[in-house]
């Protein structure tokens, strides 16, 4: 399964690197979201600093939808969809590979976004390891849930409009726990941050396991 996952992740990342959609569309979209949120909150530095973690994670969530749509689009044609089913690759390996590719894309996006938050909002992390652990756990959950719902909507004509409706409510706990954990990392409040990791961790594990189990049946149904 790991060999299959590496193969699929490598293929998806190579396609993304060549198409440059993530670079020229997803990343600018995320940055634009941050700037617009800042405009909406006004020029007050205090309000911006307090809202920074939430705005950061909102931008990540919206970008997740775009990244998952791209991941689904790679196999949206009849030929590639059938080709993957006939390839001999374990469906759990396909899930793990696609989720890993989305995970890596989102981690890179978060690094760039955080640089934007630092510049735009003047916010600095006092406990970086806490933010890093929160990001990794949250991103595992986002990528796993996104790929599951991507597979669910893959065969539908309305998948592009349906996907945000399916994904965004489900990943609301990540928005909440991710924002609070990052707020704790900014404030240096480790105990508070760790308590929010207790939501992000089980969420990540639950959707990872669900994806490994359900991806095959979802692929058949789509």
């Amino acid at each position: 399964m790991l060999r299959d996952a590496l193969l699929v992740a490598g293929k998806d990342l190579r396609i993304e690197a060549r198409s440059r959609v993530a670079l020229w569309q997803v990343l600018p979209f995320a940055m634009l979201s941050l700037v617009l949120f800042a405009f909406a909150l006004g020029p007050g530095q205090l309000a911006l600093r307090q809202a920074a973690p939430g705005l950061f994670w909102l931008a990540v969530l919206f970008s997740t939808v775009l990244a998952v749509q791209r991941s689904v689009a790679i196999e949206s044609g009849e030929g590639t969809r059938d080709g993957l089913r006939l390839s001999g690759i374990d469906p759990a390996g396909i899930f793990l590979g696609k989720a890993s590719a989305v995970f890596l894309e989102l981690l890179v996006l978060q690094a760039v976004l955080w640089a934007g938050v630092t510049v735009l909002f003047g916010v600095h992390l006092r406990t970086p390891w806490l933010a890093l652990v929160a990001s990794v756990l949250a991103t595992i959950g986002l990528a796993s849930a996104g790929v599951i719902y991507g597979a669910l909507s893959a065969g539908l004509r309305v998948r592009e409009t349906l996907l945000p409706l399916l994904v965004l409510p489900v990943v609301a706990p990540v928005l909440l726990a991710g924002s609070r954990a990052w707020a704790a990392a900014i404030g240096g409040s480790v105990a508070s941050g760790v308590s929010w990791l207790r939501i992000l961790g089980p969420f990540a594990v639950a959707y990872l396991v669900l994806g490994l189990v359900l991806y095959g049946p979802l692929q058949e149904a789509s």
Binding site: L7, E78, T80
Partner: peptide, 29 residues
Amino acid sequence: RHQVGLLGHAAPLYDELTAAENVRFAVRA
């Protein structure tokens, strides 16, 4: 599925990958 080779109307190819990469992906799968 993994024992048959289906060449349908739509080829199971990824446009962004080269010809060699597509074939290598098929065999490594």
